[in-house]
């Protein structure tokens, strides 16, 4: 079984999910078996304004441990991550990072902020 320890910067209590990656998808948004898929399928809310289609950064997560057990990021994900607030070297988009190792042990932080209703002064 794979395991994800989820830490919330918002201060919510931590959660630990155990799951079998082979059973993905766990719901219908994001890549099957992605962090977004696993979290939503286990009752943990992770914002995903674009529906998990790799078109925004609202599912930005920071992978504190186990990052090598995830699928490699593609250009589309990297391009979007560039625009994520609070970007770190281990940032991923939850909708794209797929848990590939059946015995993966991950620690994932859900940042407090995402780019959401941020509108510059240029926006009327």
């Amino acid at each position: 079984m794979a395991r994800i320890r989820v830490i919330f910067e918002s201060g919510e209590p931590e959660r630990v999910i155990e799951f079998d990656p082979a059973r993905a998808p766990f719901q219908h948004d994001g890549k099957p078996g992605s962090i977004l898929d696993v979290l939503l399928g286990h009752g943990i809310h992770l914002e995903h304004a674009c529906g998990g289609n790799c078109a925004c950064t609202t599912c930005h997560v920071i992978v504190k441990a186990g990052g090598t057990k995830l699928s490699a990021s593609e250009d589309s994900e990297e391009d979007l991550l560039d625009k994520a607030p609070g970007l770190t070297p281990t940032s991923r988009l939850g909708c794209q990072a797929v848990v590939e190792d059946p015995d993966a042990e991950l620690v994932v932080v859900i940042p407090r902020y995402t780019i959401n209703q941020i509108v510059s002064e240029h926006g009327a």
């Binding site: 304004a49 674009c50 078109a55 925004c56 950064t57 609202t58 979007l80 625009k83 780019i115 959401n116 209703q117 509108v119 510059s120 240029h122 926006g123």
Partner: peptide, 12 residues
């Protein structure tokens, strides 16, 4: 609906 969202923008 929620939003607006997204960083694909041109506003200058």
């Amino acid at each position: 609906f929620t939003g607006p969202w997204g960083t694909f923008v041109l506003d200058r």
